[in-house]
Simulated assay, not measured.
Amino acid sequence: MNRLFHVPLSPYSRKVRLVLAEKKIEVELVEERYWEQDPDFLRRNPAGKVPVLKYGSHTLSDSMAICEYIEEVHPTPPLMPTDALGRYEVRRLVAWFDDKFQHEVTSKLLYERVNKKVMGLGYPDSTNIKAGAKAVKYHLDYMAWLLEQRRWLAGDAMTLADFAAAAHLSCLDYISDVDWNRSETVKDWYAKIKSRPAFRSILADQISGFMPPPHYADLDF
């Protein structure tokens, strides 16, 4: 059995989970408290980060590297375009969400509201929360601008870029930090993507001490 060492509210873990589920690859989910620096986990990934995928005889780390590997060995259904420019745009947007969005939004909201408590690192920093709440509006507006020109974030087909964005937004939606009324275009996009069978296990996540809002698992919001 393939195993994914993950954290339920890690957008990087969720991105990999979405790719595996979309391609109908069965995997056992193993929750990993990576911040405890367990020696067994560090042997799997010396970087000490999730996700880590045990795939057959291979141990794979880094979410983007895992996703591209899975795409190469399981090309159907495709999550990367066939043309070089299209693949560039997907990688650009994945980096946008995994780097810029993570730094400006996810790390300011999810880390402060959830991770600090789970890891025993103290109380939320209100300055960071205010900065994250302000920044997420800019990112939602950018997504709306993209989606006004395209059916999906990177083009006319759903790609890994959509999963990267949805992974971050789903984590924030779990803690009610997304204003879905800001853009009907983005809201419609998210409704489409969270209605996919690949999203089911993510919508079923329950984190001890944190309850999601009623709309979190509602496919019609």
Rank of each mutant, 00 (worst) to 15 (best):
R3G: 02
P11A: 07
S13P: 08
R14C: 08
K15N: 07
V16D: 01
L18E: 05
E22T: 09
K24R: 15
Y34D: 02
Q37Y: 10
R44L: 11
R44D: 06
N45L: 03
P51S: 07
S57R: 14
H58Y: 14
L60F: 11
I66L: 06
P77V: 10
P78N: 12
L79R: 04
M80G: 08
T82I: 13
D83Y: 04
D83H: 15
A84W: 15
A84Y: 11
L85E: 15
R92T: 04
R92K: 11
L93F: 09
F97G: 08
D98W: 00
K100P: 14
Q102V: 04
Q102D: 14
V105T: 10
V105M: 03
Y111K: 00
Y111W: 13
M119A: 13
N128G: 13
K134W: 06
K134G: 04
H139K: 01
D141T: 11
L147D: 10
R151D: 13
W152L: 04
G155R: 02
L160Y: 01
C171H: 04
D177P: 08
D179M: 09
W180A: 02
R182N: 02
V186A: 11
D188E: 15
Y190T: 00
A198N: 03
A204Q: 14
D205Y: 00
F210M: 02
F210Y: 13
P212K: 03
A217I: 08
F221V: 01
